[in-house]
Design a protein around this nucleic acid. Structure first.
Lengths: 149, 149
DNA sequence: TATTGTTATACTCTATAACTATA
DNA sequence: TATAGTTATAGAGTATAACAATA
């Protein structure tokens, strides 16, 4: 039996239609955000910087988290080190490992990229009515729950 | 002056926070949908099939619409023709052009991919309360408007 | 012997430049 | 000569396999 979903109001057809429309709307928003905020680094590089923001990591950990091969992660992190966004240090306890950290420059870049991405959404959400904004606020909570499920 | 947005309730900080959370929620939903519904064709191939669904196109038109180079589009469409999803025909009026159309097999594949993508969302939306579903329904309309702006 | 990280090599998708055929 | 499409070649990204250094 379903976890909740008991107060049923949607027909199967309406459920299907809502799901399709919702999925398409989310995809379009994502695409517009990516397109408009012409990033200075590639998506996979951005993703790795975000991981390092939470704390230093080894290449192995990053490869596992990002679900790419070790050689691919070597390539990605080398590019970030070359750009001065990430620093490499030897692990004092295990000579096989290296420890990757975000540099100050990397942290600044992350903040700038986020600000630019947000800008696109902010100008559009600002144009909505207070009621529409409230709907989006509640929807965001629900979507976060859905995405985490 | 703003188009609407006059019934102001959100502080700049709240507006910024909502925009960030909304953007992240949409991105996460998109990512999960893409990841879970392991597609049989690559994203750029899927995109071209969707264009051809609306009617036959020349390679030139597709390249312009998808914002890729002509040689890239040659490669993409050649792969789709090899898979039997797209058919190539000479333009009877202009010998330089070719006309690309969706085959029956291509049309069927599109429907199957969409069904699989929807499935992930459907099972999760079905688990929500009727009230939450109604919020998402209204949010979808608003997001569609935002994405089109 | 197992693990970490890199190098060697190959495949895919992207691009620009050069070429062929038609208008 | 201009345009449509393809082929030639190169540059990123992905991968697996093989290697060096360390545990």
């Amino acid at each position: 039996m379903p976890t909740q979903g008991s107060t049923r109001t949607l027909s199967p057809a309406a459920l299907s239609r809502l799901s399709t429309e919702l999925r398409l709307a989310c995809m379009r928003i994502s695409r517009r955000v990516r397109f408009e905020s012409s990033d200075v680094i590639a998506p996979h590089q951005f993703s790795v910087l975000c991981r390092l923001e939470q704390g230093p990591r080894t290449p192995r950990e990053l490869a596992d988290i990002e679900k790419v091969s070790a050689p691919s992660m070597t390539r990605t992190t080398s590019a970030l080190v070359d750009k001065g966004l990430v620093s490499r240090a030897d692990d004092p306890e295990d000579g096989r490992q290296v420890i990757l950290s975000l540099t100050h420059e990397g942290r600044t870049l992350l903040r700038d990229i986020r600000r630019r991405r947000d800008a696109w959404v902010v100008t559009r959400v600002d144009d909505l009515t207070a009621e529409e904004q409230e709907v989006l606020r509640r929807a965001t909570e629900i979507l976060a729950k859905v995405a985490a499920a």
